[in-house]
Design a protein around this nucleic acid. Structure first.
Lengths: 220, 220
DNA sequence: CGAGGTGTTGACTGCCCTCAAACTTTGTGG
DNA sequence: CCACAAAGTTTGAGGGCAGTCAACACCTCG
């Protein structure tokens, strides 16, 4: 069987030599998930670090009223489960594949040995956790201080920057985008319409967005 | 001068021997801040890890419209600035002392050397970052899925649990509590009044709260 | 082609934010 | 230790943003 090499893809291990990466690769367990399939659920015990080799997954929580809150969008090279590496805790969130997705897992104990052997790994972990923390802090601040319109505008500008062009396809269903921005699909739909009517964007196709007036968007 | 020993207070260094802690203590710089004094501001360059030796500080962001969002409340033993340890970045948030507060700083380069020498430090850091991440994720979910009333109820229950008794004094001004929960002082005031009228709590004095019906609070 | 999930549009409602004024607590200097 | 100023809190009135509900249109994919 052709074993896809997760390890070389991941920034987490990028500073290791090729030989060291092989070592890591040998203790990795692979899993494949289909679109819509659950990767883990709240309540599951966490005992491994998960790395996205290919595909895309969403991490979200469910409130007691059943509402969904999207916390992170994971793409190739991203990982999750780091809080599990020390405390033998349960997942407090869900993860679901948004497309056919390959996941590499490393058991807690094995990963702990890795970190002892190669200290740069834990530094990389710290780095990435910090980055994600900063991102979440920003989003938290925005959700409780700004209007949906400006959050959406900000999201569009940032996403377009990631793609490096004004014309791009939303990487999320609007349903998920809504919970990501802390609002509802209906409101997203309306606000996008409003932005279009005001000449700031154009909706060329399903999920296809073109930014017309970036400055005005940033102004919100 | 009597040098307050920060290091022994901090879980971060708790696994080090007494002698090793002394070493760490020798590279620590101390600063004292008065109530209301700014510890760092957004835009300041980050070049040190900060540890609260005694006192209390709030970490918050300012939105473009001037609104404040409280992100973390730091008390003795907590630290901040970990994202600064690798990337030579700027602070994106503010920190302000809420009472006379003693802070211990360790420079980036010196702390990096420490982490190389004592790998358990970075593991402790990871642990704490994960904890804080989990906490923020929960709060984010709550702010965009639940009503102010239930967020407040949840906060009261959790805070009472921290103190270990039903009768306690709010550790924050209501103004700050409001931005912590993503609302306004007026709304906090009203909701507390409502909870009291419904017999779930009692407001015995300024900031003094007594939980009467914990079950009903958790129900929200 | 049909079915289920997804997106759109409209009408309505309500939570909570805003503004403003009175009252209370805090803390500081005389 | 008191007095007074500044900050924080409470209460009321009013309005707006966005959530809810419902019906319909639209994809996407068996």
């Amino acid at each position: 069987m052709h074993q896809h090499n997760c390890v070389s893809l991941v920034p987490l291990f990028s500073q290791l030599s090729e030989q060291e990466q092989d070592t890591v690769n040998s203790i990795v367990h692979q899993h494949h998930y289909q679109t819509g399939e659950t990767i883990f659920a709240a309540g599951d015990s966490m005992d491994a670090l998960m790395i996205i080799a290919s595909g895309q997954a969403k991490v979200f929580q469910l409130a007691s009223n059943g509402k969904e809150q999207l916390l992170h969008l994971l793409t190739a090279g991203d990982f999750d489960g780091e809080t599990a590496l020390f405390s033998q805790a349960k997942h407090n969130s869900f993860a679901e594949a948004l497309m056919p997705t390959m996941i590499c897992q490393i058991n807690r104990t094995e990963f702990q040995q890795l970190m002892q052997k190669y200290p740069t790994i834990s530094l990389n972990l710290l780095n990435e956790l910090g980055r994600r923390m900063t991102e979440l802090e920003k989003r938290t601040t925005q959700t409780s201080t700004s209007s949906v319109e400006s959050r959406l505008a900000d999201y569009l500008v940032e996403t377009s920057a990631q793609f490096g062009k004004n014309d791009f396809k939303l990487p999320l269903k609007k349903k998920d985008l809504a919970t990501y921005l802390g609002t509802t699909p209906e409101t997203i739909s309306r606000k996008l319409g409003e932005l279009e009517r005001n000449g700031l964007i154009e909706q060329t196709g399903s999920k296809q967005i073109c930014i017309v007036d970036q400055e005005a968007l940033e102004m919100l």
